[in-house]
Design a binder for these strands. Structure first.
Lengths: 100, 100
DNA sequence: CGTGTAAGGAATTCTGACACG
DNA sequence: CGTGTAAGGAATTCTGACACG
């Protein structure tokens, strides 16, 4: 896991980096679009990947997409990716005749 | 400038990442070994490069080095690097006969 | 010199709610 | 539905100082 995935950024900085209000950022979490870590005290910690994701979300919101649509779209992409990986693994196994 | 150089991490997280006390981290800044940014409110913001540097400093402290020695050692390395770059630039200019 | 700690205050973040639409 | 805001409290950070060595 690289630095991009480390959850170390507080919401104030994320707000500056993305231009989104803290309110919006918390709301997108409530709508299951983003999953920050928490410190013991309860303060949210984000990664740079989260920041990129928030910018992506902001663009889609601007395009008039609703939060549940963004979430569904994301799930579809996940599924596609899974299928792709399964197929790839199957082909690899067949090619090299790997079992287990 | 990559994510590694972005000053976005608060001192509490840096303390966790490095294992150093906040006191030590602030002290190394006082001794000119590290240069965090500040938010408008005055809270320190560090980058992952700073975190790496702090770990490096911690190792040298463990080896019994004093803060001014670490600072001097660093300056020497900087100077070496400068000389190296000047020489390289000189050679390039000579080779391609570039002026200005 | 390097670091811990208690002290008081300021900046930051959190949650739940009301508002508007 | 998405977002702003005021409210009260809790977590986080800041500085300057005293202590020890």
């Amino acid at each position: 896991m690289s630095y991009k995935d480390k959850k170390v950024i507080t919401i104030g900085v994320v707000s500056e980096l993305t231009g989104l209000s803290e309110r919006k950022i918390r709301y997108y979490e409530e709508r299951k679009l983003i999953y920050p870590d928490r410190s013991k005290g309860g303060t949210r910690k984000y990664s740079f990947v989260d920041v990129e994701r928030l910018i992506d979300i902001a663009n889609k919101m601007e395009d008039g997409m609703q939060t549940f649509e963004i979430r569904k779209q994301e799930q579809k992409l996940m599924k596609k990716q899974e299928v792709r990986e399964k197929m790839l693994r199957g082909q690899l196994n067949a090619a090299f005749n790997i079992r287990k």
